[in-house]
Amino acid sequence: MTFENKDLSGKRNPAPKKESQKTTCQKNSFQKSTCQKNAFQKTAYRKRQDFFQKAAFLAMKLSIISVILILLLIVGDIFIKGYSAITWEFLTEMPSNQMTEGGILPCIIGTVELVALSLLVAVPLGIIAAVYLTEYAADGKIKNCIEQAVNNLAGTPSVIFGLFGMALFIKYIGLPMSLLTASLTMGLLIMPAIIRTTQEALLSVPKEYREASHALGVTKWETIRRAVLPSAFSGMITGIIISVGRAAGETAPILFTGAVYYYPRLPDSVFSPFMALSYHLYVMATESMNIELTRSLQYGTAFVLLAIVFVMNLAAVGVRKYYKMKFKPN
């Protein structure tokens, strides 16, 4: 009873105020509009909410702007300092005169081949592993362990992959320092990312698709192949896009396994050593005979590397877009 009384008294207090407001409104019928405004006036609580909302939006805008600015700064800086070096000869000739002159053709070819081969290693293996983990492996400790291992692998420094690749492929198996060895090592490096993104993509495929397929008398494997994987395709492409950038850019894994300082020939087989843009850049910027003299060549190389990654990503985005258009309405 006491509670009820308190409640009632609590309610009564503000009530007369409202009444008085109403009565004033009714009295000044000409000022109706102002009265209505009062009714919708913001409370202190709403004002505080609005303030926080505005502040949060501002923070988001600022962070987006800063991300774009940083990107523009990097690309712009590299372009301004490097565009003078980019000539037809630069793109199509071998380096010459102790790499202070000539072009970077073997590096371009080497990087493109490295990316392609490492994707060839990592994409099938990564997708199979992800399909197994999401579709087949029963929930439990073993699956958890594998997933944690994949996460840890994804965070392992690239130099460790390089040393591991050297130890396994060169010392233990006996492969030469070559494009193949470097691609295998790079493949191992990018595989965890491909597994993770493929898993995410598979998990995002609605359960209804699987049910519908099973209800048509389709086996689990056929369901995965014909209904689940195609629906997960665009998500999987995202993983590949990230991997292309990494495979083209990472230097440490190829340093010990296949990329060489100077090899002014196009790699004639996967068993020959090769030059890569990333390593070439590192060499010219730190170890070459005349670092200052080749400054513009270095920026030119960096720009070409960026451009290659950009073009490859663009191609992947194009594929994804085509796929989406094919299967989903606007």
């Binding site: 008398g217 209904a227 629906s231």
Partner: peptide
């Protein structure tokens, strides 16, 4: 399941 087909509560066509 080929002989006993099923239609679900929520229409679930494939994205094809």
């Amino acid at each position: 399941r080929k002989r006993v087909g099923m239609v679900f509560q929520k229409a679930n066509p494939f994205p094809m």
